[in-house]
């Protein structure tokens, strides 16, 4: 974890209300792992909290990272007005990223809406390590579809829209059935109902998933403590969770979600969890209050 000055290099609106910004921050780019995040503070007035953003991409060679966000309030609106050459304060990289089993060949990524930002860097890491990636993406309609030009060619990219204006008509989770037998591991981020549905799908088929190359059926090896990197690697599904955040370093206990063993800090134990660490009935997602 470091506190660095990050210089904006490029900022553009990639979808209505959604922005992609690239920052020069070599110290963060060098250590960032897929699923980790940065806690950002601009030279804004009137806001008392930083804003957390998943590290969307990271390039240690150019020393850059990118964030992808939706303009939802004063903090993100302020960011959209930032000009190249201007600087913001970034604390990071923070949190536990995705755990990929070294033996995994086939990764299934499931993203709903802005959840794509959480799995985007995993696409790059997986391809770099010679794995195959299927990315399932769900959104409301054609206007919100993540541009395939922002993805490497090697990814198999499938889209579901609520209104069927592009790709499958229905939920992105409908597409999972076709790939679950192929996948060694699955990684997801998106709205809470989507993640809950996925967790339900996986929970019902526990023993039969992730067997393509990992041979999970032949016992799980030595027992590992829940929540450990090893336990998460063994879980078929890992999910990146969101919550309103205070400090982002584990001090304030503001960003918890409910796990099967009680409160879990999204900023420290997460943001990535194995699906079976989470109490899906008790967990409430983030949000903003009425002004």
């Amino acid at each position: 974890m470091q506190l660095v000055d990050a210089e904006l290099q490029e900022s553009r609106q990639i979808l209505p209300g959604q922005w992609l910004q690239q920052y020069h921050a070599p110290a963060l780019a060098a250590g960032a792992r897929a699923g980790q995040f940065v806690h950002v503070r601009g030279d804004w007035s009137g806001l008392v909290l930083r804003r957390p953003f998943t590290i969307n991409t990271a390039d240690p060679v150019t020393g850059t990272i990118s964030i992808h966000f939706r303009e939802v309030g004063r903090g993100t609106a302020w960011l959209t007005r930032l000009r190249p050459g201007e600087r913001i304060d970034m604390l990071g990289p923070l949190g536990q990223g995705f755990q990929v089993d070294p033996r995994s060949r086939h990764l299934l990524l499931v993203a709903g809406g802005l959840g794509i930002a959480d799995v985007r860097l995993l696409v790059d890491e997986a391809l770099r390590d010679g794995r195959q990636v299927v990315l399932l993406y769900g959104c409301r309609d054609a206007s919100e579809v993540y541009p395939s030009s922002l993805l490497p060619d090697e990814v198999e990219y499938l889209v579901a829209t609520d209104d069927g204006s592009v790709g499958h008509k229905g939920f992105v989770t409908d597409l999972v059935l076709e790939y679950e037998a192929w996948a060694d591991q699955a990684f997801a981020c998106g709205p809470l109902p989507m993640l809950r549905t996925l967790a339900g799908l996986v929970a019902g088929r526990k023993g039969r998933l992730g067997v393509a190359t990992l041979g999970r059926k032949r016992g799980g090896g030595r027992p590992v403590p829940p929540g450990s990197p090893a336990a998460r690697r063994r879980s078929f599904l890992q999910v990146a969770m969101e919550q309103n955040m205070g400090c982002a370093v584990g001090a304030c206990l503001g960003c918890v979600i409910w796990g099967v063993d009680g409160p879990q800090r999204v900023c420290r134990e997460g943001p990535v969890f194995a699906y079976d660490e989470i109490d899906w009935d008790a967990t409430a997602g983030p949000g903003t209050h009425a002004q």
Partner: peptide, 17 residues
């Protein structure tokens, strides 16, 4: 174990926890 989430939110010139 503390309270159920959400536990924090920003308010004008402050925050609730």
């Amino acid at each position: 174990q503390g309270n159920r989430p959400p536990r924090v939110t920003e308010t004008p010139a402050g925050m609730l926890n």
